[in-house]
Design a protein around this nucleic acid. Structure first.
Length: 552
RNA sequence: ACGCCUGUAGCUCAGUGGAUAGAGCGUCAGCCUCCGGAGCUGAAAGCGGUGGUUCGAUUCCACUCAGGCGUACCA
């Protein structure tokens, strides 16, 4: 039981006791919330319970608080004081901190990994960019946040599977094939008009060049239709391989790569349409098939099969989401860019029409990214004149900085990415600031071992009495609760902030307290403390997908 | 016109139904006989506006102003 839980149950016991004694009247009690007070003078923990419960118990907050304090019997509590309008402030004996640190030390590098009994089966789908070109910076934010969220939820004990949906069907694949076709023929000086909706990126030329390198002029004399069919397959393979490589290099893992084409091949779209026609949630009008999405909260009904018989994107997505739920996921989370938010209502409607609860589909919307260099907005890549790709970004600032900067803001906020700051090797750059704290710890550990000084895991900790030391232990103690709440609220940016704060506290400690050249008891206690800080920093960085080098 | 997100310090952003709203950059003032100065310490400076709910609102609600994004038989 955590100290907060202990205190909370003690307060409830005190309440019951006071009621039994007739000091206060009975009534419906609210939940006991314990917080860390805004100032240290207010103690280690505080609760507003007396204020919350006052009305139900028919007495004033301060009277209730007094009754609770009088009847309180809780371990570790040195004193409990009533303050302000009715807060109860708890001042704890320092033993609780030493026992807390002891627990953290014992957990080692497992500290921060939580277990859940019977966790929901959750699927997290992220990035899912079309395999028609390179990832740009917007995808990069999705990749960083999605992978960090997966790491976070896994640490918090959720059962999460990560998936990438490959849009390898539909018009854009024909455009891709036609674009590669034009570039390929150009390499052989064969005249060919570039398709109107083609992809103009230089990566298409690269693709054509690679095909030429591999197959030579094999396709030049081929019949146009057959050549396009071949290029559709070859280009997709090539693009997909590049995506996989880039994402892997960006520390993004996927458990499943799901091809849209397989839904078409397995006739899933016809099946789901038949199903919805059967339930009456789909109907025919003007030669097209419509989803009755307005019956499930959408603004209007949506076309699923066009009057020419070709399914819309939504058709595949309905079949896809049915497939997801048929695979047994209790909850499906999609991470989408802000430009897709208008799609949420119809997708949730579709899920409802399929007989699942719309809440089982959770759509997270990620706001847009703007790049700044030297205070100036960067609209296009200098090299290509097109939008900046993830690879270009990583080349400029590195994977660690790119990931950290993408993750450190709330997903609800638009992101101004400061390229200049991200490349700086100084304390101004939060990534280096955090990594440097870990490197300093590693350096101390290294020197200790060179001097032949080992770490005694059972060393007494009560010589940790400096204010920074106490602050560090308290901060470490917050970590597991942070993992749980950030995962629950899908807020990986909080982990970035925590790592930064913890690193800051460590740097303060480092400037005030020495580990080398102090007496043995203090040294051992401090070693355990910084080891725990190191483990926690590394744990949080690994959630962010950022490296924790020993030397920098 | 409607929908989603955002409006907090000069700038970029955290944060919370509660007791004196935090950090970085920038500005100003300090710290290297010291385990890595890629560091530390200090100062000035702020919740877009109007109402409402509440014992208490920067936080919740309504309206309003401002910015971003979106409203396809595109994907």
């Amino acid at each position: 039981m955590s100290i907060k839980e202990t205190l909370a149950s003690s307060i409830l016991e005190a309440t019951q006791k006071a009621i039994a004694m007739g000091t206060i009247k009975d009534g419906k009690l609210p939940e006991v919330l314990l917080t860390v007070p805004p100032q240290k003078e207010f103690g280690d923990f505080a609760t507003n319970f007396a204020m919350q419960a006052a009305k139900a118990l028919h007495c004033s907050p301060r009277v209730l608080a007094q009754a609770l304090v009088d009847n309180l019997a809780a371990p570790y509590v040195e004193k409990a004081e009533i303050a302000g309008p009715g807060f109860i402030n708890f001042y704890l004996k320092q033993d609780w901190l030493y026992e807390l640190l002891e627990k953290i030390v014992k957990a080692g590098d497992e500290y921060g990994n939580l277990k859940q009994e019977n966790p929901e089966k959750i699927q997290l789908e992220y990035v899912s960019a079309n395999p028609t070109g390179p990832l740009h910076v917007g995808h990069g934010r999705g990749a960083a946040v999605g992978s960090a969220l997966a790491n976070l939820m896994l640490a918090a004990g959720y059962n999460v599977e990560r998936e990438y949906y490959i849009n390898d069907a539909g018009n854009q694949m024909d455009n891709l094939a036609a674009s590669v076709n034009a570039r390929y023929l150009a390499l052989f000086a064969v005249e060919c008009e570039f398709p109107e909706n083609g992809y103009h990126g230089t990566d298409i030329i690269d693709t054509a060049t690679r095909i030429k390198a591999k197959y030579g002029d094999k396709f030049v004399k081929m019949d146009e239709a057959e050549r396009l069919a071949q290029f559709k397959i070859l280009a997709k393979e090539e693009k997909l391989a590049a995506l996989k490589e880039d994402l892997k290099a960006f520390n993004c893992e996927f458990d499943v790569w799901f091809s849209e084409q397989t839904l078409h091949d397995a006739n899933c779209i016809k099946e789901v349409c038949d199903y919805l026609l059967g339930t009456g949630d789909m109907y025919e009008k003007d030669g097209a098939l419509w989803l009755k999405s307005s019956a499930y909260g959408d603004d209007k009904d949506r076309v699923v099969i066009r009057d020419n018989g070709v399914p819309t994107y939504l058709a595949a997505d309905i079949a896809y989401h049915r497939n997801k739920f048929q695979r047994g996921f209790d909850r499906v989370i999609n991470l989408w860019g802000a430009d897709h938010h208008g799609y949420i209502a119809r997708m949730k409607a579709a899920v409802g029409a399929l007989g699942y609860k719309p809440e089982q589909l959770e759509v997270l919307i990620l706001q847009m990214v703007s790049l700044y260099r030297d205070g100036e907005l960067v609209k296009m890549s200098k090299r290509t004149g097109k939008s900046v790709t993830l690879n270009e970004l990583v080349e400029e600032v590195g994977t660690d900085a790119a990931r950290y900067f993408f993750i450190m803001r709330s997903i609800d906020s638009q992101l101004d990415f400061d390229l200049t700051l991200a490349t700086e090797h100084s304390s101004d750059n939060p990534v280096y600031y955090v990594q440097y704290a870990n490197a300093r710890i590693c350096s101390i550990m290294h020197q200790m071992s060179e001097e032949g000084i080992g770490i005694d895991l059972n060393a007494p900790l009560n010589s940790l009495t400096e204010e920074v030391e106490i602050d560090l232990i308290k901060k470490l103690g917050e970590y597991e609760e942070l993992i749980a709440s950030s995962a629950r609220e899908r807020a990986p940016h909080r982990i970035a902030h925590y790592a930064y704060d913890l690193a800051g506290m460590f740097h303060s400690f480092y400037n005030q307290c020495r580990v080398l050249g102090v007496n043995k008891d203090v040294q051992q206690a401090r070693l355990l403390l910084i080891q725990a800080v190191g483990h926690t920093l590394k744990h949080s960085l690994s959630i962010l997908g950022v490296s924790a080098p020993e030397h920098m």
